[in-house]
C-alpha cells in the first residue's frame, strides 16, 4: 500500500485517497465549443498510460478532500514528489525515466 504525502496533511496511506488518472489536463476555457470533434474526443477520452514516471492526480477523499498532484514511477511505485493542484511539477533530476513496454 502506497504512502502518499498530502501537501496539505502530510504522509497518509493510499486507502485515504481515490486515484484520478492523469494530471495537468486542463479543461479548455471554451468548454471545447471551438474544438473539432476529434480534438474534443482526444481531450475527453485519451490519457497517457506511461510506463515510467507519470504525473497523476489523487483525491484525498477520506482526508482533506482536496485534489493533489503526484509524480510516480508506475513501474517501481516510487513517488518522486507530490504537490498542490494548480502547481507546476517540481524539477527532479531523473524524472524523465520511461521504460520499454
Amino acid at each position: 500500500m502506497l504512502l502518499i504525502e498530502c501537501p496539505h496533511c502530510g504522509p497518509r496511506a493510499e486507502t485515504e485517497y481515490a486515484g484520478c488518472s492523469e494530471a495537468h489536463i486542463a479543461r479548455p476555457e471554451s468548454g471545447g465549443l471551438d474544438m473539432t470533434d476529434a480534438e474534443w474526443v482526444e481531450w475527453v477520452f485519451w490519457r497517457k498510460n506511461t510506463k515510467g514516471v507519470y504525473l497523476e492526480r489523487w483525491n484525498h477523499a477520506a482526508g482533506c478532500r482536496r485534489w493533489i498532484n503526484c509524480m510516480r514511477d508506475t513501474v517501481t511505485n516510487e513517488i518522486l514528489a507530490t504537490y498542490k493542484a494548480g502547481e507546476k511539477p517540481p524539477k527532479i533530476a531523473d524524472a524523465e525515466r520511461e521504460y520499454k513496454f
Binding site: A18, C20, A26, R27, R57, N59, A61, R65, R66, W67, A85, G86
Partner: peptide, 13 residues
C-alpha cells in the same frame, strides 16, 4: 460531491 469539488478546486478556482 467529489465531481463538483473537482471542478471547483481544479478548473473553476
Amino acid at each position: 460531491l467529489g465531481h463538483l469539488e473537482d471542478y471547483l478546486q481544479t478548473e473553476w478556482t
